[in-house]
C-alpha cells in the first residue's frame, strides 16, 4: 500500500538528509507506528506519502501510484485515498461537528444525499452521535480529535495517516482514540501513526518502525516503543 524504495529526501536549506536511503513496505491493512525522536524524519515520511514533498532520490509508491510520475492534477485523486489526522485537530471553528465532517465531502463534490447518509454513519462510528450540532469549542480534546478522525475517514480512504494524534490528549482519552483507530484499521484501512507515546505503542503491540536521523533503525512486527525485546 505504501512502498518506499531507497528514498532520500534532502530539503533545500538543510545540510543533512531528512530521510536517508529508506526502504520500507507497508501492506494493505497494516497498522504501523512510526517512532523516533523529533527531527528523526517521521513528518517527512508522512509528507512524502501525501506528495506534499517530492523524494530527492528513490521511488515512493502509494496505493499503486508511482508518485514521481504522478501528474500534479492527479494529486487530489491520490489524497482522496488518504485520510490525515493531526495533533492539533485542525477543525473549522465556525462549523458544527456535522459541517466539519461534511466539509470533506462537499469540497470533493459529493452530492447532498451522499453526505446526509455517510456523515451520521461515521459520526456514530467515532462515538459522536448526538453531538452533530456542537461547535469544536464546545467539545473536549478527545471529542475534537474524534471529529478530525471522522473527517479523515468519512470518504473511506485506503490509508489513514495520523501525526501524533494523541499528543494533546491525556492518557485515558488517548486510549480511547487508539481503540477507535484500531477499529478503523479492522475495516481494512491501512494506518500509519507517528507518535512519541511510549505507553500506547507498548500496549498496542503493533508493527513499529523506528527512525533515527533519517535512517530506519528498527522494523519490528509486534514491537514496543523502546528497542527492547
Amino acid at each position: 500500500m505504501i512502498l518506499f524504495d531507497n528514498v532520500t529526501k534532502v530539503y533545500k536549506t538543510a545540510q543533512r538528509p531528512a530521510l536517508n536511503d529508506v526502504s520500507i513496505n507497508i501492506e494493505r491493512g497494516d497498522f504501523a507506528f512510526l517512532v523516533g525522536s523529533s527531527g528523526s524524519g517521521k513528518s517527512t515520511f508522512l509528507r512524502l506519502v501525501l506528495k506534499e514533498e517530492r523524494a530527492s532520490r528513490g521511488d515512493v509508491h502509494v496505493a499503486g501510484r508511482d508518485l514521481a510520475r504522478l501528474a500534479s492534477w492527479k494529486v487530489p485523486g491520490l489524497r482522496r485515498q488518504i485520510g490525515v489526522v493531526f495533533q492539533d485537530f485542525r477543525l473549522l471553528p465556525t462549523k458544527t461537528v456535522f459541517e466539519n465532517v461534511a466539509f470533506a465531502l462537499q469540497v470533493i463534490g459529493k452530492p447532498r444525499h451522499v453526505i446526509d447518509r455517510t456523515v451520521p454513519e461515521v459520526l456514530q462510528l467515532v462515538g459522536l452521535d448526538g453531538k452533530e450540532t456542537r461547535r469544536p469549542d464546545e467539545l473536549s480534546g478527545g471529542e475534537q480529535q474524534r471529529v478530525a478522525i471522522a473527517r479523515a475517514f468519512v470518504n473511506r480512504p485506503a490509508i489513514l495517516l495520523a501525526d501524533e494524534p494523541t499528543g494533546n490528549l491525556d492518557p485515558v482519552t488517548s486510549v480511547g482514540i487508539m481503540k477507535l483507530l484500531d477499529r478503523i484499521n479492522k475495516t481494512g484501512t491501512t494506518i500509519v501513526m507517528a507518535t512519541h507515546d511510549q505507553d500506547l505503542v507498548d500496549q498496542m503491540r503493533k508493527r513499529v518502525i523506528q527512525l533515527d536521523d533519517g535512517h530506519i533503525v528498527r522494523d519490528q512486527a509486534r514491537g514496543v516503543y523502546g528497542s527492547g525485546a
Binding site: R79, R80, F103, V107, I108, G109, N155
Partner: peptide
C-alpha cells in the same frame, strides 16, 4: 488558509479550491 489546507488534504481539486 485553514479551510484551504483541509480542502487540499482531503483531495479537493485545485480548481475547486
Amino acid at each position: 488558509r485553514r479551510e484551504t489546507g483541509i480542502m487540499r488534504l482531503v483531495g479537493a481539486s485545485k480548481f475547486f479550491i
